[in-house]
């Protein structure tokens, strides 16, 4: 497939999920949250990382392949797992240093990788509120590497978050994690959005690639950030999805997205069909 044809057949969100999946190594033990993270993890397991182990917060440990579930805990995500246990157990695995990768979304993320899943504005009189940490603080505290996947907008990428749910590198100065009592060598290593991918250089979010094949420009990326982003010396174009990645993505992820029965209302069911 040539590039033009390719561009017509995938969106920036598709690129985001596929780019995220590429970050998972075959040897990883990856703790994933609901939404984009679990989609990326199941995609990776179907592609280049068949041996990765996927951990879901409720106590599901999966080394074997499974169908994309509509939420983290379902009959299917539990069926034929290698281990079913509890939330305490899987987080102990993390705290003791056995989880190599954490994959999560977030409400907001800032320049030094701190994630906000609580409030915009004052805690007691917020402008906006999310549902809270869930497992996000655990994941960012305990996993060796944490990768955050979220759709990019200026609102969601402030220079400093109003509320630090999941500390990344605090104010960016060295040793902050250690001073606070967090495992010092852990922390965010990448941010993947629908516009670009970022790494962390000296604890600061750094632009690595731009989804140019989706029509995204450097100006667009910068316009959707709340500070003047540090740009990597080797800034490049995001590698577009390969035919194989797109084929598996469509078959194993897009075609498997479903609404849980208890969330489906008659009208929505029709729309989905």
């Amino acid at each position: 497939m040539n590039k033009d044809e390719n561009a017509k057949t995938y969106t920036a969100v598709d690129q985001m999920i596929i780019s995220a999946a590429r970050q998972i190594k075959d040897t990883d033990v990856v703790y994933v949250g609901v939404g984009f993270p679990i989609q990326a993890a199941v995609l990776a397991k179907n592609l280049h990382a068949p041996n990765c182990t996927i951990i879901l917060q409720n106590g599901i440990v999966r080394a074997s392949l499974f169908r994309l579930p509509y939420t983290t805990d379902t009959m299917e995500s539990q069926l034929s797992a290698e281990q079913l246990t509890g939330l305490f157990y899987v987080n102990c695995l993390g705290q003791a240093g056995h989880l190599t990768l954490g994959f999560m979304g977030g409400g907001q993320i800032d320049r030094y990788g701190n994630v906000n899943d609580h409030v915009v504005g004052d805690y007691y009189k917020p402008i906006h509120r999310w549902m809270g940490s869930g497992g996000a603080n655990d994941l960012m505290s305990f996993c060796k590497r944490t990768i955050i996947i979220l759709e990019q907008s200026k609102r969601r990428f402030p220079e400093r978050v109003d509320f630090n749910t999941c500390p990344g590198y605090f104010d960016g100065k060295p040793n902050r994690r250690k001073e606070m009592g967090l495992p010092p060598d852990n922390g965010p290593v990448a941010v993947i959005t629908d516009l670009a991918t970022y790494s962390f250089e000296d604890r600061e979010m750094t632009l690595k690639t731009v989804h140019t094949d989706c029509g995204i420009t450097l100006e667009k990326v910068k316009a959707e950030l709340g500070w003047d982003i540090k740009v990597a010396e080797d800034l490049s174009d995001t590698e577009p999805p390969t035919d194989e990645e797109l084929r598996v993505y469509r078959e194993k992820i897009v075609a498997e997205r479903r609404i849980p029965p208890f969330m489906a209302r008659p009208r929505e069911v029709k729309k989905q069909d």
């Binding site: 940490s133 603080n137 967090l182």
Partner: peptide, 24 residues
């Protein structure tokens, strides 16, 4: 989970490497 585990084991609190530094 830790709060409940502490309750289950009968101790007043449990230490953790998480939550620290968080605005929670």
């Amino acid at each position: 989970a830790l709060a409940l585990f502490a309750g289950y084991t009968g101790v007043p609190f449990l230490p953790t490497k998480g939550h620290v530094g968080s605005d929670m």
